[in-house]
Design a protein around this nucleic acid. Structure first.
Lengths: 143, 143
DNA sequence: ATTGAATACTTAGACAGTCTAACTTAGACT
DNA sequence: AGTCTAAGTTAGACTGTCTAAGTATTCAAT
């Protein structure tokens, strides 16, 4: 068994725990976890439906209904691409942006409280390794 | 701003990316992500409904219907606590155990492929810091 | 020993998230 | 023009989630 596999096994366990932790962090917030995730994708500017669906690993119709609901709720607006009449773009509204900010604040403060259970040294060590996790998440999906 | 908050901010971003990565890892598998998560909680033996609900940060009725469906699907069975007739326990069936194993294999092999994009040194570094993330996830929820 | 409150769980009803299948419209390519 | 492909949407089915309400059991305090 390769060292990647051994590590993957441990990583899988750890990530499971982290996912449960995050669920707690956003439980009871005024947007669902899925909405929070999509809003985050829109922070940098308008995105196409297809891009959003791929990024979140859902099929296009799923994203369509998700965006429909957020549009109804005033969190996003749809636009068009002047260069290609088939594509729809999605953009944050002011409401969407502030909603995103407030949920993010809650999430960050939850994580910060959680981080207080580590020692300063441990936090330091964690900080140095975050870019690695980032790289891992950013890598092109294999296969 | 405390160092925990600064770190929490970066951690939040990184974890967002990791969550999207994991969504890809289990997309198209024969159990839903939620079912996979619950099956994982049962690996060590029977658990009570209330425990499961708390661990997954959902309300009890949510867990009830989730378990109902998995029971219908033959993945788990319900039992009783001889010491307290109110509590129901939930246990993996053989089918449930093998289903869990197969999804886990898929997830781990996806992560392993992803880890191949790092250098051996980076993997080593990641390995040393995993226990920290584990501790973070295991800490008692603040507040 | 009885009763009243709390605990563990389930059911029901509403709505969000997800999928597949089918449709519409627009661009691309002879 | 005519066909193929790409981008989105709609519809229908099922899962995931919540709140509200109900049942059964245990516990506590007279």
């Amino acid at each position: 068994m390769s060292d990647s596999e051994v590590l993957a096994r441990e990583l899988s366990t750890t990530l499971r725990r982290i996912v449960l932790l995050l669920r707690r962090a956003v439980a009871g917030q005024p947007v669902t976890p899925q909405q929070y995730a999509v809003l985050g994708s829109l922070e940098g500017g308008p995105r196409r439906m297809t891009e959003l669906a791929e990024e979140h690993a859902v099929h296009l119709p799923t994203m369509t209904v998700a965006i429909n609901r957020m549009e109804d709720g005033g969190l996003v607006t749809r636009g068009s691409d002047p260069a290609d009449a088939r594509v729809r773009t999605v953009e944050l509204t002011e409401d969407g942006r502030s909603r995103l900010a407030s949920v993010r604040r809650a999430r960050i403060s939850y994580l910060a409280a959680q981080l207080e259970t580590l020692t300063p040294d441990e936090r330091e060590e964690l900080a140095t390794v975050l870019p690695l996790l980032d790289k891992l998440g950013r890598a092109d999906p294999p296969r």
